[in-house]
Amino acid sequence: MGQTWASRLIIFTTLLFLVGPFIIIIFAGLSAGSSLAFPPDGLSLKWYLAVFEVESFRQSFVLSMFLAVGGTLTALVIGVPAAYAICRYNIPGAETIKIIVAAPIIVPGIIVGLALLRYLVVPLEFTVTLALFLAHTALVLPYAVRVVSASLQNLRTDIEEAAVLLGCNRLQAFTKVILPNIRSGILAAFILGFVTSFNQVPVSLFLSGPGVRTLPIDMLAYMEITYDPSVAALSALLAFLSIGIVFIAEKTLGFSRYV
């Protein structure tokens, strides 16, 4: 009995440390006062409502959504064939290719952002939005390949061989047999990519232009102007959005198996 008690205390303390700050953010956003404080000066919903009034938040939210959805979909379009090839084919230089595809995880984001700004945006006249799109796609690609590979590996190889024997061509075998079977893996990759991209800061730190900012960067910029509780409120709202998406994913397909 004593052991259970001690083990609960350990879990509770760790969770307090990990989740506590988030609870504080929720309450700091509920403040009726005008500066960030905990406990808040009185309670009010005004800062949660104020978030929707800030025009730059709306613009940057749209940009961040576009990057997260568009970037992740693009990463899947090129990542799923790559994962399939890595798992099912005996390709020359497989190890090198694997390292190349995994590179965006190892290279620190701030360096990626700076490099793209300096060598794509400035000399080649790419727009900042395009550079952001490419960077976010590259960033998500390794996750897409990894998660989809994992679900391909759990799939028996003989079913597609059977499909081919039964007269499907390779493409049909892939679309009719493989794709439906790895659907939940793809969706898991999409959600993981979406959350990664949406919360991404370092890559976008340098990749911003006048009027073009991702939401996290815009929040940082807003904090340069004022430290009022609306940033806390927005943080809490975004967290609920992420948690909501992950929660639904977990309920419908057991997302945590793939993380």
Binding site: L18, V19, A28, V195, M219, L220, V231, A232, A239, S242
Partner: peptide
């Protein structure tokens, strides 16, 4: 759960 929350928010707290 914290992995799903923006690092801006987490640090801000």
């Amino acid at each position: 759960l914290p992995l799903m929350i923006s690092p801006v928010a987490r640090t801000y707290a």
